[in-house]
Amino acid sequence: MKGRADTLKGAPRRGRGVPLPLLLPALAGLAFLLLPLLALLVRAPWRSLPEQLTSAEVWEALRLSLICATAATALSLVIGVPLAWLLARTDFPGRGLVRALVTLPLVLPPVVGGVALLLALGRNGVIGQWLDAWFGITLPFTTTGVILAETFVAMPFLVISVEGTLRAADPRYEEAATTLGASRFTAFRRVTLPLIAPGIAAGSVLAWARALGEFGATITFAGNFPGRTQTMPLAVYLALQNDPAAAIALSLVLLAVSIAVLAGLRDRWMTTS
């Protein structure tokens, strides 16, 4: 202990040192997050990997995952951004409660979310029975069902992110626009939206990433059928049962896609918000 203190003292000092009680837990935290991913790479079946990855099933699952996550993000944008605006810019009784309810899917186990979706939108659900009776629409076991399940779980990320940005943005720009004769909607469209674009982008990335990895709500609400509702996480889970090598290969693909997308977007948007 003493010897180390001496060398620290003797070492050339940079601008500011990192205190050891912060550095050690920080390094432990970093290792804790990275080691499992590293293990995935170490144990990857590199030799059989090309064969594993060229199977049609993998590409089907990946394609479905990408489509559904993107559609879920788009749906979240269409209904989530107005919701965030409502929470940040208007005052109505029980707003705090509504805000808490919006974040509920963040803490709810996704499987519970899936069950809740079944009870609401299932063929026999509270709303679903009317969808079925009037329009002949049934949502469980369909790709639309996957998108809805992913939106349910991922949209709160977007709402929270956009709402935070809205609160930080100066409302006086909008007020100036309205005093100059713009309607509140025009002010939102022409002033607010460009102002909070980085926040929307960051929220979309978060929501997209969450949707891509969604498992519990998807398998509960939409079931598991290759090409229709079997997304990558479902394929990984079921492959793990009888073919761990295939599961690792699938995980690698998902990991690579996630890293590529997050890295690609990070420089442009995530750092500015």
């Binding site: 469980p140 076991f141 398998i219 509960t220 939409a222 079931g223 598991n224 059928f225 290759p226 509702t229 889970y237 079921l238």
Partner: peptide, 11 residues
């Protein structure tokens, strides 16, 4: 052709 292949018998 089922609508879903479930992960266990209970589901």
């Amino acid at each position: 052709t089922p609508v879903s292949y479930e992960q266990d018998v209970k589901s």
